[in-house]
């Protein structure tokens, strides 16, 4: 489990980083927090010839809140999100999800950009990005572009990121303070990858009917995804125990999990239903 041989550079600008990436012809890997890449290399499942470390790219750091919403630089570490009172105010769902990520040592190093680029189907942030309709700003040798989260994740460990592109930041739309939400995740041990997870939020009209319902799931398919059938079933209804139970059944039918060492598809479907019911209870202000 010793790392294979590789070269290492620390560019100081984003442009320098993408130039190096482009010149490497696919042989280089970008390293941010290294929480997934380094174990992969130690197991020799990846043997990049060059590591391009983004740690000196100041432009990729920082948390910013404005009228448009919340912006997280790609090199923002989980710990910084957890420590930020501003993020808690402006995006409580995100903070709750981050609380479930791995262990504190990993949260000290792991980054927002790293998680998005790695695109683990059981990771929390891709789900929050997809559920909230976030967009991901990337830079390549031909310039910048912005990709909707929904179009960014293509499958397990696969994204729309080009070979010469790096993530600059992720932008979350503004979060109204009256918005109701719930987050639930099921894992074998605290900090493990989720066997299943659910993130929901919605707004309500004057009579308490749901509108703008967003329901995202992770750990139960090729990548994090929204459940449009569940969302349309929720809009216009009220969040009651019976409605929650009804959409939970819909959710179990809508997801497409597969079997692996840790859980069967059947169990994952059942978990999605339970977690959605419990997330709905949380959104109602009850205990899960």
């Amino acid at each position: 489990m010793k790392l294979p041989k590789f070269d290492y550079v620390e560019p100081t600008t984003a442009l320098e980083a993408v130039t190096l990436l482009s010149q490497s012809r696919g042989l280089a890997k970008v390293i941010a927090g290294g929480q997934s890449l380094i174990p992969t290399m130690a197991l020799r499942l990846a043997q990049p010839a060059l590591l391009i470390d983004l740690r000196h790219l100041e432009s990729l750091r920082g948390i910013a809140v404005d009228e448009a919403g919340l912006r997280l630089g790609a090199m923002t570490r989980w710990r910084e999100i957890q420590d930020s009172a501003e993020v808690l105010d402006t995006h409580p769902l995100l903070v709750e999800a981050v609380r479930h990520i791995a262990h504190y040592q990993i949260r000290n190093r792991g980054t927002v950009g790293g998680s998005l680029a790695h695109a683990d189907p059981a990771a929390e942030l891709p789900c929050i990005a997809v559920t909230c309709g976030a967009s991901i700003r990337v830079l390549g040798i031909l310039g910048e572009r912005e990709i909707l989260a929904d179009e960014f994740f293509l499958g397990p460990l696969a994204t729309a990121l080009g070979d010469d592109e790096i993530i600059l930041e992720v932008r979350f739309p503004r979060w109204p303070s009256s918005r109701q939400w719930g987050f639930q995740e099921f894992s074998r041990r605290q900090g493990d990858f989720a066997l299943a997870g659910v993130a929901i939020f919605y707004d309500t009209d004057n009579s308490g009917r749901l509108e703008n319902a967003h329901v995202g799931v992770f750990g139960v398919g090729q990548c994090a995804t929204r459940l449009s059938g569940v969302e349309s079933a929720l809009n216009g209804r009220t969040n009651t125990i019976s409605v929650a139970a009804e959409v939970a059944r819909l959710a179990a039918a809508e997801v497409t999990p597969s079997d692996d060492l840790h859980a069967s598809a059947r169990y994952r479907r059942a978990l999605v239903a339970v977690l959605l019911e419990r997330a709905m209870a949380l959104a109602r202000g009850e205990r899960a």
């Binding site: 174990p39 041990r189 605290q190 493990d192 060492l261």
Partner: peptide, 16 residues
């Protein structure tokens, strides 16, 4: 052996 790492061979940790 499919549980060949400590991510797949799950040992109890201090918080469990």
């Amino acid at each position: 052996l499919l549980s060949g790492t400590l991510a797949d061979y799950m040992m109890p940790t201090a918080t469990d």
